[in-house]
Design a protein around this nucleic acid. Structure first.
Lengths: 243, 243
DNA sequence: TGCCAAAAGTCTGGAAACAGACCATTGGAG
DNA sequence: CTCCAATGGTCTGTTTCCAGACTTTTGGCA
């Protein structure tokens, strides 16, 4: 019989669950905080609601919240108008953080994450460029671009994230959105570990503009190329800080 | 404060676990069977080994295996040289199956799956074409292409799956492989529900050849275009059978 | 000023999942 | 023919996780 499983079996018969519910929940909330989905000073949804959204029990959620509270990411207040308030401010990067973040990803993790991100973000841009966009969608994309360009240094990464994810969001494919969010998550810690430098921002701004122009112009080839170029730049930047 | 969570929150605060361990395991094994990772007549790894791979207890795995046994997908034999043998043969498609499969995906599920597949497979091809391939990799790709072309009708879908996944596999990115496998899974039931027609096979063969040529030729643009064209053909075929 | 609604905090019983030891069956090797 | 290794089958105690009822705190509002 002809067998051709290759690495497929490896990825298909991989662990059904990443860890226990508590650990996974902590990870998830931390991601939401670090990506800025819930910004500094805002609060998470009420426990009951959030537990339902995450598909876990309140007990487990509360354990996760307490862990994040003890690590200083959340400030929990009771009573009406209480809740779990985010107190996270992206730390200013220090030398060694990047190396540490890369080591945490395990062997091959960096290349894997960068490759994955390249694939899904290029795919999303290509698809969006091949779609007939409504006026609202065009405005939304332009607005995100403007937000990145106008962002204060402290907000830059968050706005950059929002811009990149908006491309996937506009395709309207939940699976694709999820994949792009996942890809971005895997490089967040790395990006947060390198300083936000003016020349890089300016360079990125030009590339962002090219991406938007290609998408609005309905040119999938150009969109793909623009995203690829931009991500290669980011990858090169990371590798530069690593050497 | 500028908030721009959009759909991000939706995908980030989604359920931590898809269901209980038992259900997820059944789903996984069924996927492995339907994708042909473990072909007809072959057996799954020993329970202890498989449980470790899936990160679940043997008890839970055994419940899942028993469910699949009772559904007729597995034949379990004890003793040395025993094991759980796959007895699945893709059913010959019947009118109405496609409609049913689409309905099972829920509203928007079809478009979501097709969009996602387009994005990740185009991304994988683009990346592979931009990589310096070893002789072994080139041969592997060519071999998979030949397998599809030589496949008996009953084996066609399996070989087609293997060919498509091999592109992702050759990138060496587990995340990307996983995404492509996931994308393929979401259309497997649909493809299995439509007949394998000679004209379609021949048309696909030409497009497959174009994809391989572009990848081996190191042309990311052409590779992306060839995959997009091929997948658009498949999507059109599906839509045709649906109308 | 007292009430009330919304939120976090607490407790309990039960179900799900696990780890690990042990049993039963099978077919080949010596 | 006997033994043995590899496999599925079974049992037990423990841990994790859950659903839901109940309690406490808080701040606005009538």
């Amino acid at each position: 019989m002809v067998r051709s499983a290759g690495a497929t079996g490896v990825s298909l018969l991989r662990p059904v669950r990443a860890g226990n519910a508590f650990e996974e929940t902590v990870e998830r909330l931390l991601q939401a905080i670090k990506l800025g989905v819930v910004g500094h000073g805002e609060k998470l949804p009420p426990e009951r609601e959030l537990a339902a959204q995450l598909g876990i029990s309140r007990v487990t959620l509360r354990e996760a919240i307490r862990a994040l509270q003890e690590s200083g990411f959340l400030d929990v207040r009771r009573g009406r108008y209480g809740g779990a308030f985010v107190v996270y401010q992206p730390p200013s990067p220090r030398k060694g953080d990047l190396r540490k973040a890369v080591n945490e990803m395990g062997p091959g993790g960096l290349e894997d994450a960068l490759t994955f991100r390249m694939a899904v973000e290029c795919g999303a841009a290509q698809i969006l460029a091949g779609t007939d966009l409504t006026a609202a969608q065009r405005e939304s994309l332009a607005a995100r671009l403007a937000e990145v360009n106008d962002a204060a240094p402290a907000d830059y990464r968050r706005m950059d994230t929002a811009f990149h994810l908006s491309i996937a969001e506009l395709t309207g494919s939940p699976l694709l959105i999820s994949a792009c969010a996942d890809a971005r998550l895997r490089v967040t810690d790395l990006l947060n570990a390198i300083p936000v430098l003016q020349p890089n921002i300016e360079h990125a701004a030009v590339q962002h503009a090219a991406i938007v122009a290609a998408i609005l112009g309905g040119d999938p080839e150009a969109a793909r190329r623009a995203v690829a170029e931009h991500l290669e730049g980011t990858a090169a930047l990371l590798r530069g800080f690593l050497s």
